[in-house]
């Protein structure tokens, strides 16, 4: 009568759901990082559209996930399954990612940019050699929030056919099986923590030691 026991009794099923869950999160992260970091970089150079894009991200973020899954499921060509799940989760990742990239770039000390310009760096050199590396701590904070968020919301994708840990939770609720619910929730949390830990290690590698004092580490 404990969730640990439940996992041991259903290893095959739990393992399948866990792997499905991780692979969905990984695919979503892959597309989100490419797409939203690029968008963040672009709007950091075009202030006029930045406000609109960031507001759009925030509005989408406020829509309940279950309705978003439902809506996209009914779009022809998407339907039940991974394609819709990926799309919806990528949309959810927009707000934290675009925002953190934009804020990170904009928070770079203007006198440092000025120095770069004064030394003869071009606009793109300033972006990639000064702004991006200096924005890393903030961008990583955004990525880590996104990871936790996506791992959690991914459970909802069970309603459109994803066989992931959300299914354990969902079925646990319908059957009144608390161990099943706890097993699902605990594994989801562990996945989020593990990815967050890995991200933390990557962050340490990528962020210049010259910036760590600023991030308070």
């Amino acid at each position: 009568m404990n969730f640990y026991g439940f996992i041991l009794d259903n290893t095959g099923l739990v393992l399948e759901y866990t792997l499905n869950h991780i692979s969905l999160v990984a695919v979503v992260l892959f597309f989100s990082l490419i797409l939203w970091i690029a968008v963040g970089l672009v709007i950091s150079r075009y202030d006029r559209i930045a406000g609109t894009i960031i507001s759009l991200g925030s509005i989408v973020f406020c829509i309940p996930s279950i309705s978003l899954f439902g809506f996209f499921m009914s779009v022809p060509g998407l339907g039940l399954g991974r394609r819709t799940a990926t799309l919806v989760l990528v949309i959810y990742a927009m707000m934290p990612l675009v925002r953190s990239v934009y804020m990170g770039i904009k928070s770079v000390d203007p006198s440092v940019i000025d120095a770069g310009k004064g030394m003869g760096m071009t606009g793109l050199q300033i972006l990639f050699k000064i702004q991006v590396p200096m924005a890393w701590p903030m961008v990583f904070a955004g990525i880590r929030v996104t990871v936790v968020l996506i791992t959690g919301i991914a459970t909802m994708a069970t309603f459109i056919g994803e066989k992931n840990l959300g299914r354990l939770i969902h079925q646990g609720i319908t059957r009144g099986n608390a161990d099943m619910i706890i097993a699902g929730a605990v594994i989801v949390s562990l996945i989020a923590l593990a990815i967050d830990y890995i991200m933390g290690r990557i962050e340490k590698k990528i962020t210049s030691p010259g910036l760590r004092f600023e991030a308070g580490k």
Binding site: D114, A115, G118, G120, L211
Partner: peptide, 22 residues
């Protein structure tokens, strides 16, 4: 402008060292 600035040494008032570089 970029070419011009590379031939002129500039010490800026706020120093402006790149904090992420040695």
């Amino acid at each position: 402008p970029a070419t011009l600035r590379r031939t002129i040494g500039y010490v800026i008032q706020q120093i402006g060292l790149l904090p992420h570089r040695t």
